[in-house]
């Protein structure tokens, strides 16, 4: 029974990990933009749930998947504006406003689900798998890497895009400046709060899409609290990443791999209490936070910008 080391099983785990990493990538890269500009957004979980419900409902009504993703991005944007307003304009402590946003988003998505749809479990046609021509024909590797839906491919494409934006554009330069030293950036004529608003909104859009991946690109239905803490893990991954897109990629893959691995251990009948197995990814996250030294933490992270007046 313990054939964990056969190729089909190993590549099966890898393939599943690649798919499971998708929401962590969208939400984690979104959070990366928040934090790079110095905003600690713990509302990701709430934004994801609102994105998940709204996209599901729209696809349920119209059957239009593209529109669903767009709506998730839109509602994510709106939630982000709320977050930005409270933590940038009103300078509220960001950890708590994020928790508030998560409470609000979780409650709202459940409330809408129960009021509009009576809490009925309905399924929608999700994004179909699109095998990459030729590459998907490679034994094992093809199935694991090149036979996913477009939202999965999109998540991985987003990594170089985010890196490009952050490191090769003037906008990215301004973002990092605002995150490291807002005073200096301000003196050089950068509008600190504008940059932060942009980043929080971009983060919200991506988090909303991360929510939509649950309803449209993986499980194809909506249930209350279905993201089950993904948003919090995504925030942790940003710390793990050392505030770099490729770090988010590595973290998301590692976390998903452990998750896929423990589930597969159970399938293979390896004796381990399921509750202990489910604990593994969380233990791992703490351990990585301990051992990965985060050198490039934005110096102004979670500090509202106060323009010195004289």
């Amino acid at each position: 029974m313990h054939n964990l080391l056969n190729a089909a099983t190993l590549f099966g785990i890898v393939g599943m990990a690649i798919k499971l990493a998708m929401p962590y990538l969208y939400a984690g890269l979104g959070e990366l933009f928040d934090q790079a500009a110095g905003v600690f957004n713990l509302g990701t979980e709430g934004i994801m749930l609102v994105g998940a419900f709204s996209s599901f409902y729209v696809v349920y009504l119209t059957g239009n998947l593209g529109l669903g993703v767009l709506v998730a991005a839109g509602t994510g944007f709106l939630m982000a504006v709320l977050m930005a307003l409270i933590s940038i304009t009103f300078k509220a402590p960001q950890g708590i406003s994020g928790i508030g946003l998560t409470m609000f988003g979780t409650g709202l998505s459940s409330l809408l689900f129960k009021t509009i749809l009576d809490g009925t479990v309905l399924s929608v046609p999700g994004f179909p798998d699109v095998p990459v021509p030729l590459l998907s024909k490679i034994p094992y590797i093809g199935d694991a890497f090149f036979n996913h839906n477009v939202m999965v491919y999109g998540a991985y494409l987003l990594v170089p895009v985010a890196a490009l934006v952050l490191y090769k554009t003037t906008f990215g330069l301004k973002v990092r400046a605002v995150g490291q030293n807002p005073q200096a950036a301000d003196t050089l004529g950068v509008n600190v709060n504008l940059i932060r608003y942009c980043c929080v909104c971009a983060g919200g859009i991506l988090s909303g899409i991360a929510g939509a991946t649950f309803t449209l690109a993986n499980i194809n239905m909506f249930q209350e609290k279905m993201t089950n803490g993904t948003g919090f893990i995504a925030v942790a991954l940003v710390y793990f990443s050392g505030w770099k897109p490729q770090g988010v990629l590595a973290g998301a893959l590692l976390f998903s791999f452990v998750n896929a691995f423990q589930l597969r251990m159970q399938v293979l009948g390896i004796e381990i209490p399921s509750d202990i197995a489910m604990m593994l990814p969380y233990l791992l996250t703490i351990l990585t936070l301990v051992f990965v030294k985060s050198r490039d933490k934005p110096a102004a992270l979670a500090v509202p910008y106060e323009r010195s007046e004289n």
């Binding site: 099966g12 599943m16 649950f214 279905m226 993904t230 998750n259 159970q266 399938v267 489910m278």
Partner: peptide, 20 residues
């Protein structure tokens, strides 16, 4: 083969278990 997700409500873990 049997899996438990340790939750009554975690649909995504359930989906991943089914895939496994």
């Amino acid at each position: 083969s049997v899996t438990f997700t340790s939750s009554f409500s975690d649909v995504s873990a359930m989906a991943a278990a089914a895939e496994g």
